[in-house]
Design a binder for these strands. Structure first.
Lengths: 139, 139
DNA sequence: CCGTATCCGAAGTGATACTG
DNA sequence: CAGTATCACTTCGGATACGG
């Protein structure tokens, strides 16, 4: 049964890969950070603490669900702290931990790089798309 | 029709948000980079040019589909160049452009940061999970 | 060797309704 | 105010088969 063994081999490769992933620090962290809103939350908080409502105003377009999910993950990873003030109505403040602030440095570096190179990327994309269309019309 | 107008308002908000995204350089770039394999390809190529087969060996666990997709996106963004050598069988070499190399610097910075702080994140997660379990058992 | 095309299950995302 | 729970929808990613 060649089919079975081929499948089997891939399964094993995948398991080995997952184990490798679990042990690779940068990949695990990268996976957390690659989530759409993480960097936005971090850079929003790097300018000062914010309440839940403040964050949802600042991050235009975020849904309640994703904001909460992002905040929980960041809290679990030790990037932010969540402080509840018992009152009516309740008040919750979020702020960066030292770890979160050191991440914020990276994020802001990335922003600087992105803004500096965006035009190059734009040009590259236009060139690429023009060539693709030309090749298409030949076919 | 209150339902209709509420929905309408959200639609408009989403459109406005999308427009905002399209104009925000760092977000657009971040979205490309957050893809699972981009950073791995970049850091693999930063150590030297590679052929398609070389990349697929180095990036354990990547499927043909995702590797090709990632390479096309990176090529379109001007991060890598694709050089085809007509022969039998065909040979394709990938290498970083100057733009890609400047990105590779960021990626490697990130790797350094991740490896340096991974243990902190681990501890934070364990603490968080312990507390969550305690609160669960109270309920 | 280096892909493209297609199908399908899994995961991500958002809208909505409800709670302390 | 600051969430939780649920469901529908979309997108992603892998497996497979085929082409230059």
């Amino acid at each position: 049964m060649a089919t079975r063994t081929a499948l089997q081999r891939r399964r094993e490769a995948k398991i080995a890969y997952d184990a490798y992933l679990a042990e690779c620090p940068s990949r695990r962290l990268l996976d957390s950070l690659s989530s759409k809103w993480v960097t936005l939350v971090v850079s929003a908080l790097s300018e000062g603490d914010l309440r839940y409502s403040g964050l949802s105003q600042r991050l235009v377009g975020v849904s309640q669900k994703m904001l909460t999910q992002t905040l929980r993950t960041l809290e679990r990873d030790g990037m932010i702290t969540r402080r509840v003030t018992a009152a009516v109505p309740v008040r919750v403040d979020y702020s960066l931990t030292p770890l979160g602030r050191s991440l914020a440095v990276l994020v802001s570096q990335f922003k600087v790089w992105a803004e500096a190179h965006m035009d190059q990327v734009d040009r590259a994309q236009r060139t690429y798309d023009r060539r693709s269309r030309r090749l298409d019309s030949q076919a």
